[in-house]
Design a protein around this nucleic acid. Structure first.
Lengths: 194, 194
DNA sequence: GTCTATATCAAGATAGAC
DNA sequence: GTCTATCTTGATATAGAC
């Protein structure tokens, strides 16, 4: 039996739908309210202000991405496949949630010159999760010595995949391309392993 | 003898300073006017509206990037170095102009869900220049058959370099990292050459 | 917790003079 | 071409009732 989503969740859903596709500044609070079927005062009671709403939408989004990525890792068999699972996970993830225009986190970062502490934390936690988990996964593949360089490369490629969406590239093609580049980087790093 | 910049140029300068570092929506026209020392009506006489101002700032920026990149290509000696010159060119370019927070074009694209035709054209011309010139440069390196795949990879890496700036990475490190990944991609593609 | 109604304010844009 | 002064709108946020 389906429970209908709470007011709070409807607001977060609408925020993902609208703000992460059109841009935050290009999405008036009014539009989110209309889409969620909620009154202004209710939004402010829950989230304080627009930035609070965006922040919590990002937090929920990161949790879901975290789970989706972890699932993809668990399903992969070899250490190398687990390390590269971030790319197929992205495709799968974008099917499950409302797909952002490119990346909810980078998009908000780009248009937030002076984020408040909460938002700043939410934004940083995306890069944080990305690098820390990739580091764990990379150790079995290239050894502890070469991990840092490889992780930085993988984060760059992952970021490039998302950026290509802004250049109009199809998401699946971008992921495929990224996987190819990342695979080569892993080979090169694994070859260097002392 | 230095000629002092025209009103028009002061406005474009201020736009690059402010809108491409803070974000367009986060930069009120007022702030640009104050920074340029110009009256509102003057701006609208020159550019029609805010989007016109942004559009022309992007157009001027692309011209300068075009020149800077071409210069870097001319200074490189081997075909492989010319192909990869886009990365050192980026470092050099960012010294010459007001460096954007990450990328003026991608940044504007990200916060413009429904750009007018002029702006759309200005945005597309960045990717256009990038792909067409890389394609020319790649032919001598990998042959005409494998060009498309390699170009797409290089554009992705280039885009990833810029995106890393939003994750707080230092520009020179990002460029260095990108150059490394791109170099490996070029090697791999050149090796495949039939 | 949620609503209706409204206050407040800032931003984009224009009128009209010089 | 450029200025001062102002208009108009649309967006964030709040007051007060249910």
């Amino acid at each position: 039996m389906d429970v209908q989503p709470s007011t709070r969740e409807r607001l977060l859903d609408a925020t993902e739908d609208l703000a992460f596709t059109q841009g935050v500044a290009a999405t008036p609070v009014d539009e989110i309210l209309r889409s969620a079927g909620v009154a202004p005062a209710t939004l402010y009671a829950h989230f304080g202000n627009k930035e609070g709403l965006i922040t919590q939408a990002l937090e929920r989004r990161l949790m879901r991405w975290d789970e989706a990525w972890q699932l993809a890792i668990d399903e992969a068999s070899t250490p190398r496949e687990k390390l590269l699972a971030v790319f197929p996970a992205l495709t799968e993830y974008r099917r499950g949630v409302t797909a952002a225009r490119w990346c909810a986190f980078l998009g908000v970062a780009a248009e937030s010159p002076r984020p408040g502490p909460e938002l700043q934390k939410a934004l940083a936690s995306d890069t944080q999760l990305l690098t820390s988990r990739l580091r764990e996964l990379a150790v079995p593949v290239v050894g502890a010595n070469h991990v840092d360089a490889l992780v930085a490369q993988l984060v760059l490629v992952y970021t490039g995949v998302l950026g290509m969406l802004l250049r109009g590239m199809d998401a699946e093609r971008a992921v495929e391309l990224g996987l190819h580049i990342a695979g080569a980087a892993v080979e090169a790093a694994a070859g260097t392993r002392s």
